[in-house]
Design a protein around this nucleic acid. Structure first.
Lengths: 357, 357
DNA sequence: CTGAAAGCGCTTACAG
DNA sequence: CTGAAAGCGCTTACAG
């Protein structure tokens, strides 16, 4: 920006900068000590003479010096970068964003910063992201797995990269895992509807290749079996990936010969689709509904929406704690932590079956 | 993990790793060429002999070599790290998370990765985060400003760090800014209620020190003035920071002598509080309501929630585009881009004032 | 306790 | 077109 900037004709972007960051060498010159002493002082080495440390502190303040962590990482014996990488389905998805925050809260306490990226549930994008993180020397990775084979991480795990998988287990690699109790939550939701007197309970599920979706279907089935209620395949609709499909499936279920008196929606978007269908039919006060995953405004609905809520922030915090334990040198066998879900009754799950059906 | 790991007694974490990542030097040895040639081949330098390039490619594949971007950054003339830093109020906040995704989508196209962090609307945390990002040599920063003085960034801007502020303008620094048309959106919301016949329109606003909140109040005032409706201070409640406070303020407004026939809620959480209050009074079909910012399930409410929606993903994409334009060397004066909002009518904003009031 | 020197993994003038 | 050498900003044995 200054007229003299063209006196630095180095790289293509060489003239982007009109200033420079001060280096440790310059701090040493100003403080009148050696580079080694500056490094030690900045790293709070207790062996540094207090007077020299003060001189360094002054020089740092005067120059506005800030350490270059990338250079530090390159030279340190442990090669730690104080950075981690996070792979989500989508950073904008509320569940994943809350997970993100849980991880951040724990990382912040250790001065660790997080790269974040979205796989869009594509295994190849997951791997690309992971490789991009590793190229930037992250100390560890928290991954919501999209792909089904994580063998590509074996070499890096053996090189010391800490690894934690969240929400779904990884494939072909042994690593720490943090999960919600999907089956237990689905069991609780279904049992809740059974207690209200429902016997014909529809199930709307996501793609079964997704671990959590398969687990939730299992929970639904187990709860019915526990009460001796036979599973009617006509009441089960799977592979629903968005709200529109879920709404259509709901309409189909309710238009059948012997329709369900209640519906369990196996996921956020599915719940939204089910609500839309129920409202379109004016049936929201007649058909019971429990959804998996909580939603904003759930208690402002009419009736309020009963859900099974996951502790997304808790999943994130737990994942980060496992990750840092590994970085701290914990060497035991890998662990799988399962966090409980919570049923929140708000009205839609407490509707009783219509008498004259 | 191997029994021999204690033969590396270097750092505290020195025995964490049982393997090592291959270096460029090892690739050179395997390929039988010099380090320089490997570097050139990996950087797709067209001057490298195709035969040698092929040898390098093979060695890279055989060793599973991946470049260390931090070392690259240290040595490159332009010092670019292909990383940027993002500061949000809260990565878990839906508006910010969507902003995040918009930025990611543009950055991904350039092979750039993003660090993300939450300021919790605390200026000091914002600055700490920014400094932590800069210590990791980010090329640029996208900041939703929490603090009011960003002079601390002047030196870094002059050193070539690209800077874009989103959602609110920065203080004491000249930089590119991307904003929603908060005043215009609020004007449209208020005008929409005026058209429905409302003359007594309550306003529920956030803390006025927040730029967007002040702008929204301005839009409300201007719309009333344009129709010759005097502003009644008794109908305006400001400094509402959460849903509970907003609900209480709504109750107060509606319990007054000459209550409003409609309410404009100046923000997400405020809207949720207003809905809760209206429902608690059974007034949701009588009192008009428009909220600023869209919400999940808004169309599943009864009545559907009319809102003024921001284009959060568009704000993010625009911010990233401005950032990369600067990194590409664009040197012109700083720009402020204002993105329009959209009014989405769903029912609550189209209720007419009760006749006998 | 302090400093001079080596070197982390790369890129890039500089010769050839 | 290729290689040997210097050096980015740091940390860390090694002497003193």
């Amino acid at each position: 920006m200054t007229p003299f900037s063209e006196t630095f004709p180095s790289g293509a972007n060489g003239d982007r900068a009109s200033g420079r960051r001060p280096t440790m060498r310059e701090v040493a010159a100003v403080a009148g000590v050696s580079l080694s002493t500056v490094s030690r002082a900045i790293n709070d080495d207790p062996k540094v003479d207090p007077d020299l440390a003060a001189k360094v502190r002054d020089a740092v303040a005067m120059l506005g010096y800030r350490r270059d962590v990338t250079a530090t990482t390159l030279r340190r014996a442990d090669r730690l970068s104080a950075s981690i990488g996070l792979v989500f389905d989508d950073v904008a998805n509320p569940f994943h964003a809350t997970l993100h925050r849980g991880i951040e809260d724990v990382a912040r306490g250790r001065g660790v910063l997080a790269f974040a990226g979205s796989s869009d549930e594509d295994g190849e994008r997951e791997r690309d992201l992971v490789h991009a993180f590793l190229a930037r020397r992250v100390d560890g990775l928290v991954i919501v797995p999209a792909g089904s084979d994580h063998g590509y991480l074996l070499r890096d795990r053996d090189a010391g990269v800490a690894l934690v998988f969240v929400d779904r287990p990884p494939g072909f690699i042994d690593a720490d895992v943090v999960l919600s109790d999907h089956a237990g939550g689905a069991r609780a939701a279904t049992a809740h509807l059974l207690v209200a007197g429902h016997r014909r309970i529809g199930y709307l599920g996501d793609r079964q290749r997704i671990h959590s979706a398969a687990e939730r279907l299992r929970g639904y089935s187990e709860a019915l079996a526990a009460e001796g209620v036979a599973i009617d395949p006509a009441l089960v609709r799977l592979e629903l990936a968005d709200s529109a499909t879920a709404a259509a499936a709901t309409h189909e279920l309710l238009s059948g010969d012997d329709p369900p008196t209640a519906v369990f929606a196996g996921q956020n978007l599915i719940t939204i689709g089910a609500i839309a269908a129920l409202r379109a039919r004016g049936a929201q006060h007649d058909v019971g509904l429990v959804g998996f995953d909580d939603v904003t405004l759930a208690d402002a609905m009419d009736p309020g929406l009963t859900v099974v809520a996951q502790d997304a922030a808790g999943l994130g915090r737990t994942a980060a704690e496992l990750l840092f334990a590994r970085l701290d040198g914990e060497a035991g066998p890998t662990r799988t932590v399962v966090l409980p879900t919570t049923l929140i009754a708000r009205g839609s799950g407490e509707l009783c079956p219509a008498v004259a059906r």
